[in-house]
Design a protein around this nucleic acid. Sequence first.
DNA 1: CCAATTGTTGGACACTTGTCAAAGTTTAAA
DNA 2: TTTAAACTTTGACAAGTGTCCAACAATTGG
Lengths: 193, 193
Amino acid sequence: MKYDLTKKPTRGAQRTLAAFSTTMFELLAQKSFEQISVNEICQLSNFPRATFYNYFDDKYDLVNYCWYTLTQEIHLDDVQKITPEQAMTPKQALSIFFDRVYQLFTDHSQKLTEILKNNTLNGPMVVNFTDYVKLNMQEIIHNCLDLSMVPVPLELIADHYSNTVLLVLEWAFLRRENTTLADAHRYLEYLLK
Amino acid sequence: MKYDLTKKPTRGAQRTLAAFSTTMFELLAQKSFEQISVNEICQLSNFPRATFYNYFDDKYDLVNYCWYTLTQEIHLDDVQKITPEQAMTPKQALSIFFDRVYQLFTDHSQKLTEILKNNTLNGPMVVNFTDYVKLNMQEIIHNCLDLSMVPVPLELIADHYSNTVLLVLEWAFLRRENTTLADAHRYLEYLLK
DNA sequence: CCAATTGTTGGACACTTGTCAAAGTTTAAA
DNA sequence: TTTAAACTTTGACAAGTGTCCAACAATTGG
């Protein structure tokens, strides 16, 4: 990402960022990510290509920013803050985390299902999103897993747990539309052992 | 893939396929997959671009073929054939499968470590490889999992198991070079519950 | 309200990608 | 060894990518 998201953006920058990301969402509802070109995004957004490249490295970077704006809605940091005092097990913490993301998906379900009509989940489009979610989960796990008594490296477990949560999310929300939250929790319970 | 791998290739086709795939392996040892262009592959292979596109859709397709040639060495089909008679548990079958892939990695360790100097595992380069391995595992799991007594969809379990095997493989072989096979088996045992 | 800073624009650049058709070459089977 | 079928080559094509720069506009602090 060329643009620094830590500093607060000017009005113009906000307009530009918003324009590009809403155009991306519109295009994703129409065609696959691979078929979308930077030229097209710029035409529809009424910005020149040079401006696009002022903000983003490429279209992957933009879609990544799109997921970022979505995930800003769920406050993942909270899960970690609660942890130390209440001495949660990883399973409990991940369950809270799971519910947050599940809620996010529910809130944006029509947008997301439109996107999924034209896009598979395997492509590079969602890689950054899953990486982002995974990173958050791994921090949570590190914070509440007691490192004793486990015959397996901590990071390996963190990877395994976060893979599992992501799998159930994908399954429950994107591959089986009629999976209830209760079902999803049962699956998670079973798979996390 | 443009070229039909089921029919037996002509001498010329074999030469061409081999030239492109060895060039790809050479280039992967020098730079990252993203930095490699089809032009470059063709120059080093002494073939025109049009020939490349006679055989492959793009460079992803070629690297996919490269993994395919490697995996031809381990006979994954065997694992499945043994199954019905001996009534294996998924864990046992996956353990055999794991050993085969582990062996494959050991056989090609210097080639693979060279590639990993320049390439991360997260990129789209290995996605096709992992998908391929995953597909094989899912067949194995379907063949030897008794569908009763499990409160979770079969495909979900298949996904979860194959994710786990891949994670331990990646961990044991590519992220911790000094993990023994015994360690790896212990991790697998623990994570598969 | 006016300058100084900061951001935006348009066009040009060298480069890559994937496709095509016509000409040329190799192959396998008779 | 010949020949029809199959494959490879060539060069050109339209389109996309990411970078750069000089001209231009917008913002905000003084």
